[in-house]
Design a protein around this nucleic acid. Structure first.
Length: 139
DNA sequence: GCCAACGTTGGC
DNA sequence: GCCAACGTTGGC
């Protein structure tokens, strides 16, 4: 099983919105970047991901699970763009801020730090554990 | 609101 | 196939 990170502007699609979809899950559509798309194509059912709020909040706020494999993005006719579906698993007891991640020392190699613009990213198992611990949340 | 970083587009 | 121009994103 692999770990990922999904980034969103909370004003557009927030953790509350995602939670509202409950078990059904929701398309992670709107991605128009090849790297991000390719990561989604690699995802398997049951893979876990961090849900990250960019801009105003800049924090990991919850854990999601991939519940549908990559398929065509319903928001475009362009056949190049695919997306997976994800559903909320649980919120972080305490959101983990970008500041915390940057000052931790052991998370400097995270894509979130090195390439802040990539909206779908892989996360290493060690990074997953550290951030779950910071968020006081079971991995 | 600014700007750096990065990705995409299009002309050559 | 290269590269300049442009657009977008996200942190500050």
């Amino acid at each position: 099983m692999a770990y990922w990170l999904f980034k969103t502007e909370p004003a557009t699609w927030s953790w509350a919105d995602q939670m509202g979809q409950a078990e059904r899950g929701e398309e992670w559509n709107g991605v128009r970047n090849y790297q991000a798309r390719n990561f989604m194509r690699q995802m398997a059912i049951g893979d876990l991901g961090f849900f990250y709020h960019s801009q105003t909040e800049k924090a990991v706020v919850g854990i999601v699970e991939v519940c549908a494999l990559s398929h065509s993005d319903s928001t475009t006719e362009d056949p190049r763009w695919d997306c997976v579906d994800i559903r909320a698993v649980r919120p972080f007891k305490r959101p983990v801020t970008l500041d915390q991640i940057k000052s931790d020392g052991s998370l400097d190699e995270m894509v979130l730090v090195k390439n802040s613009r990539l909206s779908v990213q892989p996360v290493l198992p060690t990074e997953w554990e550290i951030i779950c611990e910071l968020g006081q949340t079971t991995p």
